[in-house]
């Protein structure tokens, strides 16, 4: 069963639709931490502001339950804000602690605003820097859909799977052991995105 963590932050339906399209496996919209126990894989979606999202995760008890499930070896995929929540700390509208599953800091885009617009919104190329079963059947430099104003500054470069450029290079996919994160929205990136979700569902070991 694939668990999609629901903490009232954004476009959960889009993620559910895409996962349902990709697999016959059962999908559980996890409203409570105990729901996570029944799932073999977890997806942490999210659009919105970091601080508010962490507060919702704390309130619902997810911020202790998610790391526990990850320790059991379950695969976790963070999407967009969900990827950023994996970090140690964020500078978005104040300083907030994250789930600290992958060492890093969430920082605002620092680009020349006369040349590059923020939010970084639209389709951009994802350059694969490290081969991984996650990218099965996905070529490097395919376009994926992004919508964000902050980026994941990764502490340990060996955790980086892919990079993208928007006035500055930034990390667009990340992995530490059984924890994955993507800055783009695979659920909204047509064929390539759906392939990526299939790949995540198919991960084993």
């Amino acid at each position: 069963m694939i668990g999609i963590i629901n903490y009232n932050a954004g476009n959960i339906k889009s993620v559910v639709n895409a996962v349902a399209y990709c697999t016959d496996e059962q999908i559980l919209i996890a409203d409570h931490p105990r729901d996570l126990e029944d799932c073999s894989k977890l997806i942490l979606p999210g659009v919105g502001a970091f601080g508010e999202a962490m507060e919702s995760l704390d309130k619902a008890g997810f911020s202790t339950a998610i790391p526990l499930e990850v320790k059991k070896g379950k695969y976790l995929l963070g999407i967009c804000l969900g990827m950023q929540l994996l970090a140690t700390i964020s500078q978005e509208f104040g300083v907030f602690s994250g789930l600290d599953l992958i060492g890093g800091e969430i920082l605002p885009f620092r680009v020349d605003l006369s040349l590059y617009r923020v939010p970084h919104m639209g389709w951009n190329t994802v350059g694969i820097t490290k081969q991984d079963p996650f990218f099965f059947n996905i070529e490097t430099n395919m376009d994926f859909y992004f919508a964000h104003s902050y980026y994941f500054h990764c502490e340990d470069e060996s955790n980086i799977l892919a990079m993208t450029n928007h006035g500055m290079p930034f990390v667009s996919a990340i992995r530490k052991e059984n924890v994955y994160g993507v800055q783009f929205h695979p659920e909204k990136s047509q064929q390539s995105g759906l392939q990526l979700i299939k790949n995540f569902i198919g991960l084993s070991g």
Binding site: I12, Y21, K188, S189, G193, L194
Partner: peptide, 24 residues
């Protein structure tokens, strides 16, 4: 729909915006 979808018309509060976002 597996490309981004923006929806609107008559949005005047969080509750209605959330309803649209929660439904796709």
């Amino acid at each position: 729909c597996f490309v981004p979808m923006t929806a609107g018309g008559w949005i005047n509060d969080i509750a209605y915006a959330r309803a649209l976002l929660a439904n796709g």
